[in-house]
């Protein structure tokens, strides 16, 4: 199977961040590969090891996001694609889906993988938007995947509301991946060295027949007007001591203070 993975560069959530002049600023500027996309890359590599095929990755973002695409190459993807965007262009999931669908228009693929959501926006929309634009079947929130070689189908286990659904999709198709699917490999030194020699294409919006003004005016339909800190919780009580005392106190508090028993 021929795989493509859509990967996004996101800020490292473990680092400090704050709101300044209405924008979110990162003190360290450390960026990383969206964890869900790392799982998508890992899953594709695992299936390729088993059944053969190739993986290309595509990332839309500013020039410096190239380092994140390189990481996927170091993990084992064969080819990288960067859709280079102006650094000040503000896009929502619909905007990215539009760009990605323009990229895929003349590509040949069996399976497109996305992450189930971006770790920074937690939107969870781009994958199904892209599938709809490309008019291909899709499954979201995948926790497992396999290939039915004989029928050229993807077998996807997805996490639904009350259990897991095992679905077969005709190819070409799109799958959005949960990070509960696998443990992404850490690139080896050899992988890192090789990644520098792997083919890499760079696009801009114009090359895809798009432009920033039109995207912003007609495709992007939501905007963020401000950020807020999450309201803090009332300070709680920390109880220490012997288990018997702790339980006694807890029961008392739940019964008489919180009134939840």
């Amino acid at each position: 199977m021929n795989f493509f993975a859509c990967i996004k560069q996101v800020p490292d959530l473990a680092g400090p961040m704050r709101i300044k002049d209405g924008e979110l600023v990162q003190d360290t500027d450390r960026m990383m590969l969206n964890a869900y996309d790392a799982s998508a890359v890992e899953e594709a590599l695992g299936l390729i090891e088993k059944y053969g095929g190739e993986l290309e990755v595509v990332l839309a973002g500013p020039e410096k996001a190239k380092e994140t695409a390189r990481k996927a190459l170091a993990m084992g993807a064969e080819k990288g694609n960067l859709i280079s965007l102006p650094p000040d262009l503000k896009l929502d999931s619909a905007g990215y889906a539009e760009i990605l669908s323009a990229f895929y228009k003349d590509k040949e693929y069996d399976v497109i993988l996305c992450g189930k959501q971006s770790q920074d926006t937690d939107a969870g929309l781009t994958g199904s938007m892209l599938a709809e634009k490309l008019q291909i079947p899709y499954a979201s929130n995948a926790v497992g995947m396999d290939v039915d070689e004989a029928q050229k189908k993807m077998i996807v286990t997805r996490q639904g509301d009350t259990g897991q659904e095992i679905i077969e999709l005709s190819t070409p198709c799109l799958v959005t991946c949960s990070n509960d699917m696998n443990e992404p490999r850490i690139p080896s030194l050899k992988g890192i060295m090789q990644s520098k020699r792997k083919p890499f294409d760079t696009y801009d919006l114009e090359k895809l027949g798009l432009n920033s003004e039109e995207l912003t005016a007609s495709k992007v339909k939501t905007k963020i007007t401000g950020y807020r800190d999450v309201p803090g919780r009332e300070p709680g009580k920390k109880l220490e001591g012997e288990p018997e005392e702790l339980v006694q106190q807890l029961i008392n508090l739940l019964e008489n203070e919180a009134k939840v028993l």
Binding site: A97, G124, L125, S128, A131, S140, R158, G160
Partner: peptide, 23 residues
């Protein structure tokens, strides 16, 4: 915002050319 809704929300938005704000 159920899992079933998360599964289709983006696609419905793309089809109906809607703005969408999730979760």
């Amino acid at each position: 915002s159920t899992e079933a809704v998360k599964d289709v929300l983006g696609a419905v938005a793309a089809r109906t050319d809607a703005g969408v704000i999730s979760d």
